[in-house]
């Protein structure tokens, strides 16, 4: 179990804001992973606006945010995605009040969630256009390697993503099997494998409720009270007389 002190993130004042948007969920998780590993930024979350568009939101120092967004967009372009990106050095407070871009959201999300039994494993994401293709691919993935299906996510435009967790070799083989099955059944849109998932990314990934363990409160029927001991006054020791018996010298 992760101790509560570790779950609470030390909150730095929000300075710069970085946004990166791609039309596919595995691609956005991959770019978020690249961004987190490129510089010290805080991942605030994903914003899904429908029609398959997802945006990843990061906060941090301006230099870190610039590096992260640059690295993320490089990966996205390598994946063949045209992205829209944004870096604001000092966003106005009004923005933070309205848009979901503040890093305080990270703490709130974590408090609500609890601990996932599948955390800190490699993750594979497979996105299809169409639900049957995703279910068939998920079944093929589970039958092909030692992986667990952790969650699924829909982002609109018919795109749904299945996520599997396990060791990296198992996940890679599972994704390969899932790719063939998805193409056979329907339309495969996107795949991604992330060998090492950082804590920040882990906290922001969707997890099905069956994997989450919340610490249960200990139940006591009554508070156990200790019986108070009665105090007895001691005798005045100075008043006591005591005869000292002389021992015979031998």
């Amino acid at each position: 179990m992760i101790p509560a002190s570790k779950l609470k993130r030390k909150r730095r004042p929000d300075s710069a804001l970085g946004l990166l948007s791609t039309p596919s969920f595995p691609a956005i998780v991959g770019t978020a992973d690249a961004m987190l590993k490129a510089a010290e930024v805080t991942l605030v979350g994903y914003e899904k606006i429908g029609s398959g568009l997802c945006t990843v939101i990061v906060r941090g120092n301006i230099a870190d945010v610039r590096l992260a967004v640059e690295e993320g967009s490089r990966l996205a372009e390598k994946l063949g995605q045209t992205v829209s990106k944004l870096v604001i050095a000092r966003p106005m407070p009004n923005l933070e009040a309205v848009f979901p871009i503040g890093s305080h959201l990270v703490e709130i999300a974590q408090q609500q969630r609890g601990y996932s039994r599948l955390s800190n494993q490699s993750i594979g994401l497979l996105e299809t256009r169409g639900f049957p293709a995703m279910v068939g691919a998920a079944d093929a993935m589970l039958k092909s390697a030692n992986v667990q299906l952790s969650a699924y996510e829909t982002i609109g435009a018919g795109l749904c993503t299945a996520m599997v967790r396990g060791s990296v070799a198992n996940v890679a083989v599972a994704i390969e099997a899932g790719m063939f099955e998805a193409e056979r059944i329907g339309e495969l849109n996107s795949v991604m494998v992330i060998p090492r998932v950082l804590d920040d990314l882990e906290a922001m990934l969707p997890v099905a409720s069956c994997w989450i363990e919340k610490p249960l409160p200990l139940l006591f029927s009554n508070r156990v009270k200790e019986k108070e001991k009665e105090l007895v006054p001691l005798e005045n020791l100075e008043q006591l007389s005591r005869t000292i018996e002389q021992e015979p010298d031998t």
Binding site: L79, G80, M179, L188, S190, V191, V193
Partner: peptide, 10 residues
């Protein structure tokens, strides 16, 4: 397919 080359290379 987005990311196929990435996964294949891996």
């Amino acid at each position: 397919v987005i990311g196929r080359a990435y996964v294949t290379q891996m």
